[in-house]
Write a protein that binds this DNA or RNA. Sequence first.
DNA 1: CCCTGATTCGC
DNA 2: GCGAATCAGG
Length: 200
Amino acid sequence: MSWTDERVETLKRMWGEGQSASQIAKELGGVTRNAVIGKVHRLGLSNRVGPGGADPVEPVAEVEPEVVDDKPVMRTESATPARVPKPDPGIVVAEELDENGIPISAARRAIIPAGQPLPPQPSANEISPEALAKVNEVEKTAKKIGLMELTEKTCKWPVGDPATPDFWFCGLPSQQGKPYCEAHVGVAFQPMSSRRDRRR
DNA sequence: CCCTGATTCGC
DNA sequence: GCGAATCAGG
């Protein structure tokens, strides 16, 4: 197979859509992901960060402020970006959400009296604002697939009310061994303090 | 082990 | 120019 005009076009489109090299290779057929990556580089569209000058068109606002400290005392409510719609990682529908959009189980509510300044919990998790913001971002660009389209490689994060037609699943490529995509894994599971190192 | 993109280098 | 092999990371 050779890089015909059409194939290059497909390559550019899919790469622009954020598809992985392997996905693109699979789509094109007859080429490996290495071939795709190699072509991508030769086309000079590996990273928008090109040499010479800053690209004027750069919609990607993936700013990752180094939020490392967490001051329990200072809670800047006004700085809260957007509220998470309502992730319902289950069939449970009307689950109450806390200020971070985290479901509060009925069980826990029964244990902890309302209006209590939560004492240190055994495994009290706090989801970083970044993660939540990322989820919001992702849900906009999610593939919005139905139950039938779910595979072992698609994010199974449910969005919306299962009882309404607006219910869908994220559908983005899931992490290996995980049921969710990277963004949703970040919300579903607490660990991970990743650093975006793009050296080289 | 699964995956990702990045780079090298013989062709 | 091409892409397999390899590397480096998640």
